[in-house]
Design a protein around this nucleic acid. Structure first.
Length: 235
DNA sequence: AACCAGGACGTGA
DNA sequence: TCACGTCATGGT
């Protein structure tokens, strides 16, 4: 599996479309919520509040497992706190810290959510620049790119820890965030615009999935279907 | 029972 | 630039 394009192709063939970014949806009578992926019908979020929710999820998932993030998101939603003004309410800081507790780092993240909420309001419906996001406290490259890709439809590649680990193991080399992001974007530059966005978004989601299942810190190379084409497959 | 998660930031070399 | 400590809860 010599190329980035080939790697993404194999992952897509194996796992299928991932339908990121997952959003909360109401279910049942009332006040019940679940996290929904949409493989099949890909589209950007239509509602401004959904774009905001993506930023919230991206912040809450920093170095944290998604199950805890879901619990935190549902806590916020049920308390009517999953909205910019509700997170900016100074008198609610302690309450918000409790609501997002399951996602860890709750002191930091409450402040980061407040920062995102204030910036989102300033945007007033317009799309943010990457540089604008990166100067915000608590929004680094991965969080910024997640927002740009999944909320605003900018065709970027999110070269997170999983992506770099898998590419380094399978294809070799040492990759920086920006270096891998550029390389992946170059690999799919031949695609037309709506399709390329979907591909880069899927590529990130697929790499996360593969990183969770097989290419962990201690990899499960025995059972990995990329074994034969992988440079560093242990046995 | 350690180890790790869909990072970001501050610090010091 | 780069390595390292810090932040916190929950799942394996």
């Amino acid at each position: 599996m010599p190329t980035l394009e080939g790697l993404v192709g194999l992952l897509l063939e194996r796992y299928g479309p991932q339908g990121w970014w997952p959003l909360l949806e109401p279910v049942g009578p009332e006040r019940e919520w679940r996290c929904v992926y949409r493989p099949g019908d890909y589209r950007l979020p239509a509602e401004p509040l959904q774009r905001f929710e993506i930023g919230v999820g991206a912040i809450l998932t920093q170095n944290t497992g998604w199950p805890g993030v879901i619990r935190a998101l549902i806590n916020l939603r049920r308390a009517d706190r999953l909205a910019p003004d509700a997170l900016l309410d100074e008198t609610a800081a302690a309450e918000i810290r409790q609501l997002i507790r399951p996602s860890g780092y709750f002191n930091q993240k409450q402040l980061r959510l407040r920062t995102w909420a204030g910036f989102f309001n300033e945007l007033n419906g317009r799309a943010p620049q990457r540089s604008q996001l990166l100067v915000l406290n608590g929004i680094g490259p991965e969080t910024a790119d997640s927002i740009l890709v999944y909320a605003y439809g900018q065709a970027q590649f999110i070269a997170d820890a999983y992506a770099r680990r898998i590419v380094e193991r399978c294809l070799g080399g040492i990759w920086s965030y920006d270096g891998l992001a550029r390389a992946m974007q170059a690999a799919f530059r031949w695609q037309e615009e709506p399709e390329r966005l979907r591909t880069l978004g899927e590529a990130h989601a697929l790499l996360v999935e593969h990183g969770k299942r097989f290419c962990r810190k201690r990899p499960l190379c025995r059972e990995c279907f990329l074994h034969d084409g992988c440079l560093s497959a242990a046995e």
